[in-house]
Amino acid sequence: MARILEKRSLTPVTKLFRVESPLVAAAARPGQFIIVRVREGGERIPLTIADYDRDNGTLTIVVQEVGTTTGYLGALEVGDDILDLVGPLGMALEIPAGGHIVGIGGGFGAAALLCLMRELSARGDRTTIIIGAREKGLLILVEELADICDDLELCTDDGSAGFKGLVTERLAQLIGGDGPGRPDSVVAIGPMPMMRAVTDTTRDFGIPTLVSLDPLMIDGTGMCGGCRVTVNNEVKFACVDGPFFDAHQVDFEEAVRRNKMYVQQEQASKERAECRSLAMGQD
């Protein structure tokens, strides 16, 4: 059980939680994740550790409500407990020190950059963060991210804040020498199409790029193999070997296809969950 100490709505469908979890906070490293289950009969879902506070024994997670379990989680309030929380899982991010590192976040991925980019900045790397959204109101954690990097680049589809266009278009400009300039390495966290586009953008320039793959997971310890991905023609278990992989070696097509394996069931589950919460509301 993990008690929720703080909840913030970042967008209508994105919630930030600070939860009590001293053991995980003590062991966590940037880039690792947890697995939670929020009700009896519930699914186990992976969530990135956006930030951790060892002194206070807390974790910060940011959840984008896309389906059943993220929906249940988003509905929890301060003082509620998360039924099961286990971690930290996966390998911490490893990037050679001393260069210009660009972190790119989309959706919840922006939050995942928090502890990660702070640590890189702290060890002396030059850091740039690029985050993007449809419009200004959907950009999350802008102030917090601005504090922990040398340059924060905002992108919006409609131009309501920062650069008008996609994060990858801005990335291409940086590679061309604009703004904070060409990265020595890139880390991308977010929706698969975004990570794929970043990968295509850096490939021709040979810029080392890491992506955080998000396959479906169950145990998170290497026991089921459900999270397998193909990297450099080898099968890897993302929960123990990842979640970060050399982007230019990732078989994205397979990863995307495997993530869609349960689309129909996910829809059925979501409808059932909505009925359940309606029924609860009537009590």
Binding site: I218, S269, R272
Partner: peptide, 18 residues
Amino acid sequence: LTRVNLMHANDFPNADTP
């Protein structure tokens, strides 16, 4: 087996794991 035994996929969609 984990999907069924631990996560109760046989009871989907009452249980959430398919």
